[in-house]
Design a protein around this nucleic acid. Sequence first.
DNA 1: ACCTGAACACCGTTCAAGT
DNA 2: ACCTGAACACCGTTCAAGT
Lengths: 232, 232
Amino acid sequence: MSAEAPAGTEPRTPLSRDRVLRAAVDIADKGGIASLTMRRLGETVGAEAMSLYYHVANKEALLDGVADVMIAEIVDAVADIPAPPDAAAWKGVMRSRILTAREVLLRHPWAPGVLQSRTAASPAVLSYIDTTLGIMVAGGFTYDQAHHAMHALGSRAFGFAQELFNPAGDPGEEPHPEVLAGIASQFPHLAAMIVDAVHNTPENTLGWCDDQTEFEFGLDLLLNGLDGMRPS
Amino acid sequence: MSAEAPAGTEPRTPLSRDRVLRAAVDIADKGGIASLTMRRLGETVGAEAMSLYYHVANKEALLDGVADVMIAEIVDAVADIPAPPDAAAWKGVMRSRILTAREVLLRHPWAPGVLQSRTAASPAVLSYIDTTLGIMVAGGFTYDQAHHAMHALGSRAFGFAQELFNPAGDPGEEPHPEVLAGIASQFPHLAAMIVDAVHNTPENTLGWCDDQTEFEFGLDLLLNGLDGMRPS
DNA sequence: ACCTGAACACCGTTCAAGT
DNA sequence: ACCTGAACACCGTTCAAGT
């Protein structure tokens, strides 16, 4: 029996920064980032919107916190991956860390946008970068090279690469023939590429533009190029 | 002498989609993308906010239009670059097209964010992609390879790569010694990298993390890797 | 055809006030 | 220490109405 709760009122869990952030992630997961408003967040957490300001300075700070929750989830997912046993193994470890990070973000499609909008790096981010650098240095790179590498990888180091425009419809869907015809008349290279790309997809299982494949292609291009720069 | 203008009233230029879009770009250039609101846009264009809806379906459509203006500016800037004289020249042409696109976007720092938020590709984008593909095919690539290449380049093909977190302060500024000390205790690799990177900057003219250098490093890594894949 | 005024349903945020 | 109510200054968007 809870001591103070008035009759008929759920003795509600007290608010906390942590609970607020987790609720925010939930809302974004369910309705997209645009549905995450201070008012709605207050509602789902069982309080007035204004109460949130006691746990979080403002909406910017809320998003900083949400970004950090995502990084924490990545760090957690990546924790199982063992350190490289020798210098040459750096590439494989880096690769699986990045693909694991990607799996996390695929569960939170709105997260890349939030991460990209943050400008300050939290301790969680610094820590993730630090161990990533450690892997490269263990692989034989200089710190200067590792620095360049981090910039070259960019958001890929965190498991995502923002896809730009997606001509010719949704990924996984075959382009509509008449759309293709319209494109072909004006943009011959584009049309030829679309035809070629569709047919080259293995088994055609995922149709045109399987992002996972493209992500790995770009990632391997970078990792292989970097690997060739190792001093020894 | 203007026929209908009431005394004392500037005979104002009539609104048009084009004038609206140009004004929108102006506002974003001056005050950032957050300052671009329908109400402010109406004001600077000398009309009520509601009048804008006659020329543009809604704010999403406004941003689509703004993105297109940026692409048009890129296409324009890139128009002078001659086609590659032989297959091997594909790389140099691609490189200077991309760096030229980058120059355009450096004048509109808010534009990458807008481009990244668009999902539909306009004819202007399709056209830009088409001639980019043309250069690759002229370089000897198959359409399938060119397709992968476009994905691997990603936003770099349009001249930008979203920088993520920027640990240790603004680019161009030397990291503060005591901040560095704080980092060093927890994140040894990061600290070592920062020290190394600062000293490796040529002449130290641009300090730590010159983005142009990093952009070109990543770009060349990709272009060189791709170049090695050319069939012949 | 083009533009406007009034109104609606939202935002994030403040501040003084409650327990 | 933690939460709230009322209020403020904004948003984007609608709709009927003006010229």
